[in-house]
Design a protein around this nucleic acid. Structure first.
Length: 313
DNA sequence: CCCTGCCTGCTG
DNA sequence: CAGCAGGCAGGG
């Protein structure tokens, strides 16, 4: 038996919508109303726009009003109509620290704030990006404007998905990853959503039934909000774990669990590659071909150590 | 549509 | 030391 974290502990995963929402919720109340007294850029690559010197200069002296999330993007809204847009990509991390707090490795941007604390951006792989837009300046270069609907806004319906993808010869998992259709779903939660919906990730979109689109659509806000809920963390705990310890990971049903028993039926979870991304699914609960009857409930309770989520299958 | 590049750290 | 992890842009 492979050991994995008990509920309550966490692990580092790629930030998708639930993690970005968590980060925004933890950081926002702590920086509201503060002034950026100084901005330092240690690695110029992470400032996508404008030039890094301009980025620092324009931000200095501005007051932070509030923070928002759109898909996997965060925006810090400042006085004077300024907006800082941030995408964490794979390994990006935002941390609010006392000035004397030891600096994380790969800290690329530091915003010094008027209460003596610092908002720090670190990112091992340096894929994360900042953009700064001034009053009236269009934010089209950061890609936010191209995003599809917000999954928690009640707009995700079977009708929307089938109208958008129902005629496409494209793996359903790739549809979920399409940020221009639905914003915020990445490799982890696409696998989790498809498992909850009982749909094989490689199923072609044009083979899904109306009922399957509905089931899939229903799982999207349900799963994402479940993982946001499980991620709840205090600012103190967030700082202790250096923003890297997402506590929803013990509740992941399939992602990271290839070769282990399915939490619903006990069948061994499979891993395949779809559109270049590793994809984990249950070959019994997520059949590739519709109508293939199969009963497979030979699971032993002792095989399942992940938390089970009632009513998802 | 698929492919590569961007990066570092971890694994075999 | 090669291969892999994967979000997204850019190119063929």
């Amino acid at each position: 038996m492979i050991s994995r974290p008990e509920p309550g502990e966490g692990a580092q995963i790629m930030p998708e919508l639930p993690e970005v929402e968590t980060i925004k919720n933890v950081i926002e109340p702590q920086i509201r109303g503060l002034v950026m007294t100084n901005v330092t850029v240690n690695h110029q690559d992470v400032i996508a726009y404008p030039a890094p010197e301009e980025f620092c200069k324009r931000l200095t002296g501005q007051t932070i009003l509030y923070m928002t999330r759109r898909g996997k993007f965060m925006t810090i809204h400042l006085s004077g109509g300024l907006r800082v847009v941030l995408h964490l990509r794979m390994t990006g991390c935002l941390l609010l620290t006392p000035a004397e707090f030891p600096e994380e490795k790969h800290t690329h941007v530091i915003f010094r704030l008027s209460n003596g604390r610092e908002l720090r951006f670190s990112d091992t792989r340096r894929f994360g990006r900042f953009w700064l837009f001034s009053q009236g300046e269009a934010d089209h270069i950061c890609g936010i404007h191209q995003l599809g609907i917000e999954p928690l806004g009640g707009e995700v319906t079977g009708g929307y998905l089938s109208a958008r993808f129902g005629k496409r010869r494209k793996a359903v998992k790739e549809c979920l990853l399409d940020q221009k259709a639905i914003a915020g779903i990445g490799n982890i939660y696409s696998d989790e959503i498809l498992f909850a919906a009982g749909i094989h990730p490689a199923r072609l979109a044009n083979s899904l039934t109306r009922e399957e689109w509905e089931r899939l659509a229903g799982m999207i806000p349900g799963r994402l909000s479940f993982f946001i809920e499980k991620n709840k963390i205090t600012p103190e705990e967030y700082l202790e774990t250096k923003g890297k310890d997402y506590r929803n990971t013990p509740f992941l049903q399939v992602y990271g669990h290839a070769g282990e028993p399915c939490p619903a039926c006990g069948e061994t979870l499979c891993r395949i590659v779809i559109g270049g991304r590793g994809s984990v699914y249950c070959p019994a609960c997520q059949k590739n071909l519709a109508g293939e009857a199969r009963s497979s409930f030979g699971r032993k309770e002792s095989d399942v150590s992940r938390e089970r989520i009632p009513g998802i299958l």
